[in-house]
Design a protein around this nucleic acid. Sequence first.
DNA 1: CGTGCAGATAGCGAGTTAGTTATATCTATA
DNA 2: TATAGATATAACTAACTCGCTATCTGCACG
Lengths: 115, 115
Amino acid sequence: MSSVLFSPVDETELDAPDLERALKALASARRLQILEWLKDPQAHFPPQEHGDPVEHGACNMYITDKLGVSQPAASRHMKVLVDAGLVIATPRAGYVYYRRDSDAIARLTDQIAGL
Amino acid sequence: MSSVLFSPVDETELDAPDLERALKALASARRLQILEWLKDPQAHFPPQEHGDPVEHGACNMYITDKLGVSQPAASRHMKVLVDAGLVIATPRAGYVYYRRDSDAIARLTDQIAGL
DNA sequence: CGTGCAGATAGCGAGTTAGTTATATCTATA
DNA sequence: TATAGATATAACTAACTCGCTATCTGCACG
């Protein structure tokens, strides 16, 4: 009687504090913009030396530049997204690359659909 | 060539500021709780004298009591939800009844699903 | 193994949120 | 129409957000 028949994705729901954290992470024009850019890093950021934009996402420096805020401000926005589980950080060759956690985002939006 | 064939509900998307406002309204444990209660007012609130719980929703006094905060605090939470377009207020016989705007919530969650 | 650069952290200030109490408004009805 | 009760607004405070600059950390590589 496997529920996999009905739920190909993991149905684990966030508890109330985690859901609130995720919604707070989304409730920012800047962070919504970042998530949008990360849908297609190649289209929105310059070519990168070390990290593959498709596999590892966009370099933090480019996100900072494109946001037009200071490096620490961008760094904290990315931390909010990572802590909320929406984005994955990959340190590599002295840089940090960020990509969407598509599965987590899908689970979250599924859960929000039930609100 | 009506798009109604593809979209039985109105597909109008919120612009960036309205989306941010709606997400901020959702990004609160208290307000998520209120929205949950309003899914079934009869199950969560005492019987009401004037307003039909199903048609008009729950009386503000009962929401205040159940939240366990002061009346002005509850009043402002409800204002945030109304301003975000998630809840409809109906003044009636000296009380104000609140119900979910199910269509607006559905449109919002559809839009969030595209994030 | 030292230097340099990317990123994280600290600390500060302005603006916002969320709670409070006090008061104003507004409506229903005696 | 005066009053009472429900809700909204005002004013204040504490805590949090988000920007900044300055500084620290830590990894790569010469």
